Simulated scan of single mutants.
Amino acid sequence: MEEAVEDAVDDAVDEQPPKRPTMKDIAREAGVSASAVSFALNNRSGVSPGTRARIERVAERLGWRPHSAARALSGERAGVLGMVLARPAGSLGVESFFLQLMSGIQRALAPRDQALLFQMADGLEAECELYRRWWAEGRVDGVLVVDPRTEDPRPALLASLGLPAVVVGGAEPTDGPDRRDAAAAGLSSVWADDAAAMVTVVRHLYELGHRRIAHIAGVGGFTHTERRIRALREEAERTGLADARSVTTDYTDAQGAEAARRLLALPTPPTALICDNEVMAVAAVSVATETGHSVPRDVSIVSWEDSVLCRTLHPQLTSLSRDTEEFGRHAAQQLLDVLTGGPRRRVEVPLPRLTPRESTAPAPEHR
């Protein structure tokens, strides 16, 4: 028994990991020179059709695949797209938006045998440094840029590097000599009309009699955050709302709860809260319950994003519903189109649809 165990251990030690096949291996098997293999597999002239076919058959049988670094050095594509997220790492695991967005991106990439290189960065400067390194090393063919800012150095940087990019959530073009958006840099973008979506939510609450509306917003300086804040302010002016304000956060449940706690502790608290994601909306419901406010009797709550959390919480959350996976697919497909010589475009996705549920009701003074 001991001898059998020792033999098995010896066999395991002697067993070497499989060796990655090289062009020299293919040349030896096919009976040709290494240069002929290089010409054939890099789709260059210099070998006959019959020799090329024989080399390709041997390469397939041996399981040979081109090395990404070698392809980059030879000017070929790496077969990889990049995406960097400069947000707190803790915000990614709880918010459904990015998980659905990345699922949609994969739907577009998988049939094209493209990979996604995803990395977190500690701030915008670190993100820009990553782009410079990826470009210098030939690591990626192009990048998907998320969370566009009102003062954003990334579009101009990517344009100067010549690194193809699509800005996800890019704003509508603005005028002026100091523009730093995707359109000014000549990049493609895929975006949603956050201003129109905010108007939809505010009008729903206004029709229910709410005149004191607070917005628990995302990160200040993000273009979609600023568009929502501006749209709330303009709609408040148009309809004569007594009180409408926005409070910025980092999208986490902790800051969402803190913002809700401060707002509900005001001498005259809001009767409706609009939360920029479902995580903060759930946190707001919890804070309302803790502080003796009934949802929706005392305060109505709306989530900007819809997810299973919104549908399983009690009360169920009124939400803006959109196909985030399709949003991601559109963005990735646009980048793939650019890489194959397609035009740079601005693609607007359909307006999110408001889905009323149990968390919104007539304002207390209008019942």
Rank of each mutant, 00 (worst) to 15 (best):
A4E: 09
E29L: 15
V32M: 08
A34S: 12
A34D: 15
A36S: 14
V37N: 12
S38P: 12
S38D: 13
F39G: 06
N43L: 14
A59N: 11
E60F: 07
L62F: 14
G63N: 02
W64R: 06
H67C: 13
A72W: 08
S74K: 09
V80D: 09
V80Y: 02
V80Q: 05
G82V: 01
V84N: 11
V84S: 13
G90V: 00
E95D: 13
F97T: 02
L99E: 11
Q100C: 02
L109Q: 03
R112D: 04
D113V: 00
Q119Y: 09
E127P: 01
R132P: 04
G138S: 03
D141I: 01
D141P: 02
D141K: 02
L144H: 05
V145I: 08
R149A: 12
T150N: 06
E172V: 09
D175L: 13
G176E: 08
D178Q: 04
D181P: 08
V190M: 02
V199W: 14
V199T: 15
Y206L: 03
H210I: 05
G218L: 04
F222S: 09
T223V: 09
E226C: 02
D243Y: 13
T248E: 12
D250T: 05
G256Q: 04
A272R: 03
C275H: 05
N277T: 01
S294V: 10
V295S: 02
P315Q: 10
P315W: 10
L317E: 12
A331V: 12
R345W: 00
V347T: 01
E348I: 00
E348R: 06
P356T: 08
R357K: 14
S359D: 15
